[in-house]
Amino acid sequence: MSINLNVPEMSNKPIDKCVTKLKVENASLYYGSFQALRKITLEIPSCAITAIIGPSGCGKSTLLRLFNRMNDLISGVKVEGNVELDGISIYDSKIDVTELRKRVGMVFQKPNPFPMSVTENVAFGPKRHGVKNRGELDEIVEKSLKQAALWDEVKDKLGQSGLALSGGQQQRLCIARVLAVEPEVILMDEPCSALDPVATLKIEDLMRNLAADYTIIIVTHNMQQAARVSDTAAFMMMESDRAGVLVEYGPTAQLFTNPKDKRTEDYITGRFG
C-alpha cells in the first residue's frame, strides 16, 4: 500500500553497494531487570546516513549508545547479542573502549561545549590523544571547524568561550570537536531538538556533506528530518513490557512511501506517536 507523504529531496543513494560498517545481531539490553532493547538485528551501511525513528521511550537513544558503549556508564547495564564494527565485536573483553569511542564519536541532544575557548574545545580530543605540536593542533582546529561549517563564523573569536556561541553554533562546535579526533562513525542523538529551524537546516546540510566520508547514525523525533537527511531508516517501537524492538528497517524512501509493517504506516501517517 502506498501513502501520500510529502517527502522532499529523498536521497537515492544506492545503499546496497556500501559495505556494512556496523552490524547488530540479536542485541538485547537490560537496565537491571528492565529490558530496554529486545533482539535488535540490523546492518548499518558505511557511506550513508541512517535515521532511527520511533515514539518516545522506545529505546532509540539506547540503541545509538550501543555503538560507542556509552551505556556502559550506567551501572547495572547488561548487553546480550553481538555488535560489530568492521567485523570485530565491540563488546569483546579485549576491546579498548576509549579507542572505540575515538572511532565512533557522538554528538548529543543538548549542545555541550566545554567551558573553554572555541579552539580549546576542538583541540581537546587531539591533545588528549597525544598531539602536542601547537601548529599541528591549529591545523586540526581550522580543518575541523571548516568541516563543521563553523570556521567563517568563529575565525575571529577563536579565543572566546564556546559557551558564548549561539545554540546552533555550539552544536556545530560539538560536531567539530568530534571531527577533530577523526572518527569513522558519528552518532547523533537528536542533534537538532534544542535548535531553531534555521540552525536545524544548517546542521542537516552539514550532515549531508559529511555523509560522503563518515558513517552517520541519527536519532530523531522529527520525521521530516529523517526523510530529508537519511538514506536508510529504522523504525522502533516498544512492546507491552516497554522493551524496544526494531519494527522495520530499510531504505528511507521505501520506509516512508511504502512501509511493509502496519505499525510503521500508522506511525508515519501520524495515527499515534
Binding site: 556509552m70 555541550n112 567551558p115 580530543g125 577533530a180
Partner: peptide, 19 residues
C-alpha cells in the same frame, strides 16, 4: 554533559577528570 562529551571522543576517564 561535560563528562559525556569528553568520554564520547575517546578521552579516558582520568583525563576527563583531570582536564
Amino acid at each position: 554533559e561535560y563528562r559525556e562529551g569528553s568520554l564520547a571522543i575517546g578521552v579516558t576517564r582520568w583525563q576527563t577528570v583531570r582536564h
